[in-house]
Amino acid sequence: MGRVTTREKVLRIREGVASERVDTLVVEEPLEIRLDGTPLSITMRTPGSDFDLAAGFLVSEGVAARERDVTAIRYCAGATEDGSNTYNVLDVSLAPDVPRPDTSLERNFYTSSSCGLCGKASLDAVRTQARWPVAGDGLRIGLDTLTALPDRLREAQRVFDRTGGLHAAGLFTPQGELLVLREDVGRHNAVDKLVGWALRSDRLPLRDTVLMVSGRASFELVQKAWMAGIPMMAAVSAPSSLAVDLAEEAGITLVGFLRGTSMNVYAGRHRVLLEKALTAPSAAPEVPRPPGR
């Protein structure tokens, strides 16, 4: 297995004083995912939970949905001139009855924030791929439980404590119990690792769970939540407009800026129990400022 962290010499400058020290950095390396020997995708990731990452990626792409859909995952040896294993190439074997995606053409995955597809095309793509409805579930979560999730996520981030350079995705019960956490230099990889764990544990769909992510809530993260059957997602930072559109389309509860006792509920507010909250008057609309001021 590859290293998760590495040590590098750095020049540290504090208040004009320079000194040399050794810093711990998070490792970022490419992972090639092959499907029955055929190259499918390459992603930059932090080594660790690579089998979960590959399995979760296949769920996000609509290829796999059940544990038995994936029959084997293995590292490919001989990836270097001397034949040693870099642990950066995975080959995934699918069950015979699982339809194979078209890998003959260059693929522009709609999960990429820079894929260039318009909003409507992206929404349509996810709608046709999603396997499980989430709008009609009975999940509800109280404010006290919801506001405690960021701290619980942060407390479980072991590698972040040493590097400060990793994103995290955690799966929680409605009572705030952490089921699983995954870290990665890419937040989308962290979510794929989490979903892949669920696939390999035969836990899909992930009904009655809450996905908590560090950073912002992008379109692709909401897409991955929908593909895994997750009805609620919370983030410590802002969502994008397309992420909100997709959450509303799917019936997913989307919470952003979850910090301390504050949050913004952008979609699916019916799942957030407001028994302790006071409803304040709506803020007056902002008046546009004249140009030049």
Rank of each mutant, 00 (worst) to 15 (best):
V22Q: 09
G256S: 15
G16C: 08
P99M: 05
A121F: 11
A156H: 10
L178Y: 08
R74T: 05
A225N: 05
A54R: 11
P239Y: 05
M1Y: 11
L40E: 12
T80W: 14
G2A: 10
S84A: 08
D144F: 09
S122E: 01
A250Q: 08
V126D: 00
F51D: 12
R34F: 09
E249N: 11
D184S: 03
P239E: 10
L153I: 04
S214L: 01
Y87V: 04
P239N: 07
Y110R: 10
V63T: 07
G268A: 12
C115D: 14
A267Y: 02
A156Q: 11
W132K: 04
V126Q: 00
D192W: 05
T253A: 11
S60D: 14
P47E: 01
R271T: 02
V63E: 00
P291H: 04
D52F: 09
S282H: 06
E220G: 06
G196A: 04
R21V: 11
L181M: 14
P133C: 00
D144H: 04
I252M: 01
E8Q: 08
D202E: 13
R289M: 09
V255T: 11
P205Q: 01
F172I: 04
L273W: 09
V10Y: 05
F57C: 07
P288S: 10
W226S: 09
Y87R: 10
R207K: 08
